[in-house]
Design a protein around this nucleic acid. Structure first.
Length: 792
DNA sequence: CAACGACGCTCGAAA
DNA sequence: AGCGTCGTTG
């Protein structure tokens, strides 16, 4: 931009911002102008580099509002903002006013709000999550007289999402659709797009897609953005997809547009690319230098996180990836313990070993619960660990940020709010129009949908005009009339423009929950079934979350409020616009956002959610074929390599201690199946790995050492059957023994379900008991796994 | 029209 | 094991 910025070398400016950096980190931090690609190995201090670089830019006099940093999760964005704030002196410092650190999706959501006209969207658009998408696709499939068994909504949506990630829209897709099935998918795709357009809704892919289109097609929009943001940074660049690459490129602009090479700074590690299935495109890294001539490439190789054995094991594993540029991982801090890899009997045994390990770490006094984490390939694997931690009264958190918003009762409340914000949102409307039941039945609704469809108006408009809809019963008309006034009462449709609805967001959410009848509905359920008691708590929590959002809401934080950002003024926002912002934030929570290192609890999460984090002690479970690598990742070598990178990401999160385990039997979908140790175990090498086979409960001392009988992977099907048959006999004997200890009519206690009476019991390999639990009802439990205690 | 139980299907990571 | 759909009953 000018000489003062570029020329200020680290030597003259003894800035504290540049202290304690390695030469490579310093080079990256102070590489200001022009395109820069930082290849940052795991644990090499990339967050540090980005935050210091932002601080350095500010120190050089760059205005904060001209800096835009894009991260992968809200959590990462928040952390980065905090670190910048502490570097530049002070919380919420005026210095950083207008600095934008956010996620791609949030940025796009805001851009589309501001440039709604140019994007062809209403500015009150809804964001559909996967459940909404499925609901809409189902309706479209039904409307086309197709069957959901021939066209499973989930897989159709997968096809649509992939098409979108390659920037193929419904039209383009139809143009290349050949066979019968593909042509029908093209029809569903088109219907799905039309449905969203009518509802004023977008899905996650659309957020990126629409933004890319607006930036590409509307020069004034592009100009405005390019003028504001002179300094662009992208974190986790290896996980950007095609659309994100296009957006970043358009925001950066070209030399022709800017008169100089754009200041775009991206940081990534090809070895940590784990979102290929979501369209992440590794060629974005490879093409970067081509797209931005004169790119400076700065490698950050030295690892400051892990002990030597951990790093070495990670390195040995990742070398098995063939489609990879060779790269040495190194640490200057030698020493450290071996990586222990254990073969367990089953997931319960595995959980016991993990929890025993954690307990011993805790007792040694070197670690607290928050230093420990368990990683797994799929969410379902957390269960056994959770049970064991609960049994041992060890505090733990399962990282699943979106789980709360996916609960039925919360989704319902949010659907109401979405309808308040956007009455055209048919998917949300249909979800709640008769929840709780208010006499708007299937038949009446169908007639209203037809009426609305014929006139091209939203279903809610049909409900408003229930009196004109033919063939409705008087009761249905009344019910619909009541419902319409309910919604209109909340969104102020009666008052001028609906924009000056008084009161707070908190009040609105509370009113909606009470007046919709949701509260009463769940109160009724809770009275009947203890399991439903927490639903009311969740609704309460939603109110708190809205209140908290409202409290922290500052329209000036909106990236698009240029003037407010620059002048420091903020305008009083209307309640509906706060509601919209709230709904948007709710739609864009990531699982990883739920990580909270402050709580003194063990952290449980998927390998994907673990990206970017670090823990002193890590247990990785389920290192089995078809789990990691996952069974669905066997169709190509590149999928397998992505699984290997996922394993690599997990390993490199561990700072001091790492354990991995595989179970000989794993229960999935309710049945226990023989599992084969993951090929990745062998690929860890043997130098820093300590194997131990603890799977034989009757064996003398556990077998340790090299890959032995229990570890073999290339077992033939016949051999597997042989194993299974032998073990089946054992299991049957165990089952019979367990069953004989209990009888019909006996009273038992279960750690979670309380006391109950046995209704029926069955022995054998899958010994089960049907038990009538007090206050809960009938449950069938597998004796081998259920922790039942007989009581008198 | 709503509530409940039986049945059958699925089953990956997530913004 | 969990979920959604279907058919039955209140």
């Amino acid at each position: 931009m000018n000489d003062t910025v570029g020329g200020a070398g680290p030597n003259q400016s003894a800035s504290p911002l540049l202290e304690g950096l390695t030469p490579a980190q310093l080079a990256a931090t102070t590489a200001l102008e022009g395109p820069v690609l930082v290849l940052a190995a795991a644990g090499s201090g990339k967050t540090r580099v980005i935050t210091r670089r932002i601080g350095y830019l500010l120190e050089q006099g760059v205005p904060p509002w001209s800096i835009l940093a894009l991260t992968f999760t809200n959590k990462a964005a928040k952390e980065m903002r905090e670190r910048v704030a502490s570097l530049t002196g002070g919380e919420g410092s005026q210095q950083a006013r207008g600095l934008i650190v956010t996620t791609f999706h949030s940025l796009c959501a805001r851009l589309l709000r501001r440039y709604a006209d140019a994007a062809g969207l209403p500015n009150d658009y809804s964001i559909y999550d996967s459940a909404d998408q499925i609901a809409l696709v189902k309706r479209v499939i039904a409307g086309l007289d197709l069957s959901t068994s021939n066209f499973p909504p989930r897989s159709v949506l997968g096809v649509i999402s992939n098409a979108k990630n390659e920037l193929v829209d419904a039209e383009a897709y139809a143009a290349q659709a050949g066979d019968f099935s593909t042509r029908n998918i093209a029809k569903i795709y088109a219907g799905y797009e039309a449905g969203k357009r009518k509802a004023g809704a977008v899905d996650f892919d659309d957020l990126l897609l629409h933004t890319a289109k607006v930036l590409a097609n509307d020069e004034s929009v592009r100009r405005e953005c390019q003028d504001r943001w002179q300094w662009l940074m992208v974190d986790e660049y290896q996980d950007t997809n095609r659309a994100q690459f296009v957006i970043a490129s358009l925001l950066a602009g070209t030399k022709a547009e800017r008169g100089a090479e754009p200041n775009i700074f991206v940081v990534g590690d090809p070895d940590q690319s784990i979102y290929g299935w979501r369209g992440a495109d590794i060629t974005n890294i490879l093409d970067f230098e081509e797209k931005f001539p004169g790119t400076r490439v700065i490698p950050l190789g030295e690892n400051f996180r892990s002990t030597e054995p951990i790093l070495s094991v990670a390195d040995t594993l990742i070398r098995n990836n063939k489609q990879r540029k060779h790269k040495d991982l190194f640490t200057s801090t030698p020493g450290g313990e071996h990586v222990e890899v254990t073969l367990c009997r089953d997931e319960r045994h595995e959980a016991e070993l993990v929890v025993d390990w954690f307990k011993s770490l805790n007792e040694d006094g070197d670690h607290t619960w928050r230093d420990m984490a368990v990683f797994y390939r799929t969410n379902a694997l957390s269960r056994a660990i959770e049970d064991e931690l609960r049994r041992e009264s060890i505090p733990y958190v399962v990282v699943r940020g979106t789980a709360f918003y996916q609960r039925e009762e919360v989704k319902n409340a949010i659907a109401y709010l979405r309808v308040v914000a956007n009455t055209a949102d048919d998917v949300s409307l249909l979800r709640i129009v008769n929840t709780p039941a208010r006499g708007i039945g299937k038949a009446g609704l169908a007639a209203t949908q037809v009426y609305a469809g014929d006139r091209g108006v939203p279903v809610f408009e049909g409900i408003r005009r229930a009196n004109e809809v033919p063939a409705l019963s008087g009761r249905a008309r009344n019910a619909m009339g009541d419902f319409a006034s309910l919604i209109d009462g909340w969104n102020g449709a009666g008052s001028f423009m609906g924009n000056d609805v008084p009161g707070s967001l908190r009040d609105l959410v509370e009113r909606v929950i009470v007046e919709s009848g949701l509260e009463a509905h769940y109160q009724k359920l809770a009275a009947k079934n203890e399991d439903d008691a927490d639903r009311l708590d969740n609704l309460e929590e939603l109110v708190s979350s809205a209140a908290e959002f409202e409290e922290n809401y500052d329209p000036a934080d909106d990236p698009m409020q240029f003037d407010a950002a620059v002048t420091g003024e903020s305008t009083e926002p209307g309640r509906l616009s706060v509601l919209r912002a709230y709904l948007e934030s709710v739609s864009l929570v990531a699982d990883a956002d739920a990580v909270d290192s402050e709580t003194g609890a063990v952290t449980l999460m998927t390998l994907h959610a673990a990206k970017g984090l670090e823990f002193p002690a890590v247990a990785m479970i389920g290192l089995e074929e078809n789990v990691l690598p996952h069974s669905r990742a066997h169709s190509s070598e590149s999928e397998l390599e992505e699984e290997r990178r996922l394993c690599f990401v997990g390993i490199t999160r561990a700072m001091r201690q790492l354990r991995m385990s595989a179970a000989k039997y794993r229960t999935q979908r309710g049945i226990s199946e023989r599992a084969i140790p993951s090929r990745f175990i062998e690929e860890l090498g043997s130098e820093h790995v300590k194997l131990s086979d603890q799977s034989d409960p009757f064996g003398e001392s556990p077998r340790t050492g090299s890959i032995g009988p229990g570890w073999e992977r290339d077992v033939s099907i016949a051999k597997l059957r042989e194993y299974s048959a032998a073990e089946e006999v054992e299991r049957a004997a165990r089952g019979n023994k367990l069953a004989s200890g209990l009888a019909k009519g006996a009273k038992v206690r279960h750690p979670r379900f309380g006391t109950g009476v046995i209704e029926s019991i069955q022995g054998g390999a899958n010994a089960r008991a049907k038990i009538n639990f007090h206050g809960i009802g009938l449950k069938t439990l597998v004796l081998e796994y259920a922790r039942l205690e007989p009581i008198d």
